[in-house]
Every structure is written in structure tokens, then in C-alpha cells.
Amino acid sequence: MKNIKAVVNLSKSIFAVALVLIGFNSSAVEEGEVLPEFTLPSIYEGKAEISSASLEGKTVYLDFWASWCAPCILSLPMYNEMYHKYKDQGLEVVAINLDNPIEDGLDFLLDTPLDFLIPSDPEGGSAELFEVIGMPTSYLIAPNGEVKLVHMGFRDGDMETIEAEVQKTLAEN
């Protein structure tokens, strides 16, 4: 009987460890938290690198994307429109490209020119830092660095929600 109890306890611990390993080790960036610090090169050669410090004091829409992700490439031209609509009010759009190799991302940009900042992170260190849980994931960040919105995935109609939040954040600052 004692043995059985020991086995039960052991398996309970294994179970608990498995649960911890699988689901409860995430420290994803959430709404209300502060933008983590990062520095990344631009995907375009010769352009200045992009860092969290360089974005301080601005309202930033930060997106993680890759050229192989269909909802990502649906969203990017819409982000470009949003950028042009609100850049005069102080909106900055930053879309971190996670393509590896980088050429895949550049191929896409040849077809679809985007006017906002595009850092390149083929190793995905920044996505790791943000604990991105799905592609695409985007973050709206207030000038004080506070994350106002985390948006996972991209479907038809999502732009309205995003734009409303952007307007709100711009108006508050």
C-alpha cells in the first residue's frame, strides 16, 4: 500500500512538472505591462537600427510577422494605410520581420512596399522576449511605454478594433 502511495505521489509530481513545462512557464507581454527593451537592425541595408529607446515618447503599433503567414500579409497593407492616416498625429508602426532566411521577407517587401519601420530578427530573439504565442501578434504601446492592446491573429474586420484603440491612445496623449 505504501508503495502504491509512493507511486501515486511520484506520478503526481511528474504530472505537475509536465504541466509546468508545458503551459505555465510563459511570461508573455500583456496589456498594462511595460514594453521590453530591444534593439534590432532594419531589414534594409544601411538604414538605422530600431530600438525600444528610439520609440520612447511615441504611440507605437508593434507587429510580429513573417512572409509565410497568410494573416500577416493580409494585415500589413492595412497597417500601411493606418500609418499614413495617423503618422502626423504621432503614430509609429514597427513590424518586426521573423523570416529566416531574411530574403523571404525582402521578397515580400518587393511586391508590397511598406513605408513604416521594419526591423529584421531572423533568430526570433525579440519574439522570444515578448513570448509571442501566435502569428501574427501585435501590440499597441502608449508614449509612456505601457502596452495598451495585445492583438493575436488577424481576421477580416479586426482593423476596426485596432484603429479604434489607436485613436483612443493618440487622443489620450
Binding site: 530591444f38 534593439t39 534590432l40 537592425p41 531589414i43 534594409y44 541595408e45 531574411i102 530574403e103 525582402l106 521578397d107 518587393l110 511586391d111 529584421s120 530578427d121 531572423p122 533568430e123 530573439g125 525579440s126
Partner: peptide, 17 residues
């Protein structure tokens, strides 16, 4: 902190889309 490898634009342009 995260460094990208050196870009090779010419190679990227040569590749068919």
C-alpha cells in the same frame, strides 16, 4: 542585442518571387 546577418540585397533580388 539581436544581430541580423549581413543583408544580401542582390541575392534577394535575383530570387524569383
Amino acid at each position: 542585442m539581436v544581430k541580423a546577418p549581413k543583408m544580401q540585397h542582390s541575392k534577394a533580388l535575383r530570387r524569383k518571387r
